[in-house]
Simulated scan of single mutants.
Amino acid sequence: MIIERIREMNRKNIFLKIVLPAILVIILIFYFRAFFTKGVYFNNTFLVKSVVGAERHYMGKSKHGGIHITVKGLEDTHDSIEVVYRLPGNVNRQYTVMLNHENKWYPSIENIIDKDGNIIFEGEYKKGQQYMVDKNGKPLFSFDITALRNVDIAYDESYKVPLKNIAEFAFSETDTFRGEIHYLIYAIILFFVTWIDYKYPLFLFKLNYWLHVEDPKPSEFYLTMQKISYVVFPIIGIILMIAAIY
């Protein structure tokens, strides 16, 4: 009987010291791989970026269906860049972005042409510029409702791709990582505070009161809430980590 108990304790120790940490490491590897996936947010949907030669592909799936945006050409070496949108509802849009290389360090957009050869923008737009300027030098300000969170997008024949969005794809301006860094930072802070409080139960308590009370002692209520925080804080941290990639 004693031998069996010892074996059981050894099995538990192996799980706690080896198996559980190994599982945690594997989960974190997959998590951070997803967190640092390169891509772009388009209409509240994250599209994963892949590069094939001079083409950039952004692919993802929204609740309406698959989205595939292709950018053909490089801003540094080509005179034009083609941006193709394949959207849900069999909505396809194709644009040609004509570039100006007079300033070899900062190429700019002269005009944007749709698939029928119509010029839908004529003026100037430089990478990083907050707004587009038409041929008369007038700034073009447009409020893009699709940039708002939780706004339902209607993909039909009337759907119009914002001009600024076309320009941003041409210059890879909106490329980003999938994860929201501020959520991750909040989660790490919660995990760190919980670990410190668990490892040194009176450290945070004394740190809070040492200037006001000599040799402070925690109340029963404090100790109870402290134990509850050991469960609540990690749960909140996990929720924040999940929210960071969704």
Results as ranks from 00 to 15, higher is better:
32 F>G: 02
48 V>Y: 11
87 L>H: 04
111 N>Y: 13
92 N>V: 10
36 F>D: 06
28 L>E: 04
72 K>C: 04
18 I>D: 08
79 D>P: 00
19 V>P: 07
39 G>E: 04
96 T>G: 12
89 G>E: 00
20 L>S: 11
66 G>R: 11
106 Y>D: 15
45 T>V: 09
15 F>T: 07
38 K>G: 06
64 H>N: 12
97 V>H: 06
49 K>E: 15
111 N>P: 05
62 S>A: 01
95 Y>P: 06
113 I>C: 09
109 I>W: 00
21 P>W: 03
97 V>A: 05
68 H>F: 12
35 F>S: 04
48 V>N: 13
25 V>R: 07
52 V>D: 15
75 E>T: 11
34 A>F: 09
30 F>N: 10
47 L>H: 00
66 G>C: 00
52 V>I: 12
104 K>V: 12
95 Y>H: 09
35 F>H: 02
92 N>L: 05
57 H>D: 12
27 I>V: 13
56 R>W: 10
24 L>W: 05
16 L>H: 06
32 F>L: 06
35 F>W: 00
85 Y>H: 05
53 G>N: 13
44 N>A: 14
98 M>L: 12
42 F>G: 04
74 L>Q: 13
34 A>M: 08
27 I>Y: 08
36 F>N: 10
79 D>I: 00
74 L>C: 04
103 N>L: 03
41 Y>C: 05
53 G>Y: 05
102 E>L: 11
106 Y>S: 15
110 E>T: 14
83 V>G: 02
52 V>T: 15
105 W>R: 15
93 R>W: 05
86 R>H: 14
59 M>W: 09
69 I>A: 06
72 K>I: 11
39 G>Q: 06
115 K>N: 12
15 F>P: 03
43 N>P: 05
82 E>H: 11
114 D>E: 06
75 E>M: 10
96 T>H: 09
16 L>P: 01
21 P>T: 00
33 R>C: 04
23 I>W: 02
41 Y>E: 07
92 N>C: 03
94 Q>S: 15
66 G>Y: 08
40 V>N: 09
75 E>N: 09
112 I>N: 02
38 K>A: 12
26 I>Q: 02
42 F>H: 08
56 R>M: 13
66 G>S: 11
23 I>F: 12
34 A>H: 08
102 E>M: 10
46 F>C: 01
57 H>T: 11
65 G>Q: 01
40 V>E: 06
39 G>C: 04
31 Y>N: 01
62 S>P: 03
110 E>A: 07
104 K>N: 08
